[in-house]
């Protein structure tokens, strides 16, 4: 159930939604989907290569690149030292030279060590050079809280990085999208930040055989509903679907929209839904202050001012560093309970 299938982008035949492919059901893990996308693109284009810590001989710290060294060899699957600033910058240089690097951060939390190259070089290269050099590169890795990894290892970097012009930010919620969006990311001529979640790498889902690329800026409507529009991306989309199930039993019908990319952001799909439901709740795992969720809420207020029956409610991680204790961490994160409470409040059923 994808929106805007009639848009000009979707009329380009390389872009297809996975459910349009048909064929047998094939359940694979999230990590397999990412690996398939990278491998297919590496077979297609010799300029694509993968580098990062433990990606080659160790098969990836989270086994995303399992077996890729065997297929592509050590010139294309490259183990780096723990030197994020150095290897991210090196990859950007290689991209300026016309290669198409996929640079893995074991966790996006570690990308903060490389903040200068990924924020000051990659997204500004094209602009600063007046269009002479772009930077076709994919940075990817685990984002958001894992399980009790504590304050240093639980960053939701979209809260920081979505503020920066010149980057595209992809945050898939399911294996099929991860594959189609990764292939688009690798072929994209601009820097793409691809945010995976350690908590989802083992999630299974149907990923059709056959090639498809999913365009950026095209949200997917995951569940149809009439009373409230739930907007999210990445892992919390799955919490929204769970919440919608619970709320349905209470007589509240939720429409769940998975934005898939937050830069670009598919506003038309959101606006169309809110004009129908007259109610919106935004669920975003990053902290609330200056967040992508705050931006989306502001846009909904602007474009649906006369349609809204209540202000846009938001569910975020609490405004504190991520705690280690499991009990505190569960309460800190956006969770099903908090989403249900926000929807009830927004629909005046609290």
């Amino acid at each position: 159930m994808s929106a805007t299938m009639s848009s000009p982008v979707m009329s380009n035949p390389i872009f297809r939604e996975p459910e349009t492919l048909g064929g047998a059901v094939r359940e694979i893990e999230f990590r397999d989907a990412i690996r398939e996308a990278m491998s297919e693109e590496m077979r297609r284009d010799k300029r694509v290569f993968l580098l990062g810590e433990e990606v080659a001989q160790y098969d990836g710290a989270y086994k995303v690149s399992k077996g890729m060294l065997a297929e592509f060899g050590e010139r294309r699957i490259i183990d780096t030292p723990i030197s994020e600033s150095g290897f991210a910058g090196m990859a950007i240089g290689a991209a300026m030279m016309g290669l198409r690097p996929i640079c893995e951060f074991m966790s996006w939390s570690f990308s903060l060590v490389a903040a200068d190259p990924i924020l000051n070089n990659a997204p500004k290269m094209l602009y600063m050079s007046g269009g002479q050099w772009g930077c076709p590169i994919v940075f990817r890795g685990n984002d958001g809280a894992g399980g009790q990894l504590g304050s240093t290892h639980s960053w939701c970097v979209e809260g920081l990085f979505s503020n920066v012009p010149g980057v595209k930010i992809v945050i898939p919620s399911c294996p099929a999208d991860a594959k189609g969006l990764m292939k688009t990311a690798i072929r994209d001529d601009d820097p793409v930040f691809f945010l995976e979640s350690e908590r989802m790498l083992g999630n299974k889902g149907h990923v059709p055989e056959g090639e498809y690329l999913i365009p950026f800026g095209h949200a997917a409507v995951r569940r149809k509903g009439t009373d409230c529009t739930l907007c999210s991306w990445g892992r919390p989309v799955n919490f929204c679907l769970e919440a919608a199930e619970i709320l349905a039993k209470e007589g509240i019908s939720c429409e769940v929209i998975d934005l898939r990319t937050i830069r670009p952001l598919d506003l038309p799909t959101v606006v169309a839904s809110v004009r129908k439901t007259n109610c919106a709740v935004v669920v975003d795992q990053s902290w609330s202050f200056s967040s992508p969720g705050g931006e989306l809420a502001a846009l909904i207020h602007k474009h649906c001012f006369d349609d809204l029956d209540n202000f846009v409610h938001r569910v975020h991680s609490d405004d504190v560093p991520t705690p280690y204790s499991s009990k505190l961490e569960q309460e800190y994160l956006p969770n099903v309970r908090k989403i249900c409470e926000a929807v009830r409040a927004a629909t005046y059923r609290a």
Binding site: Q148, L149, G150, S151, P323, Y324, S325, S326, K327, L328
Partner: peptide, 12 residues
């Protein structure tokens, strides 16, 4: 992750 920890269970 308990209150008796050196950082009250916040650090790990």
């Amino acid at each position: 992750g308990k209150v008796g920890g050196c950082a009250k269970g916040k650090g790990g």
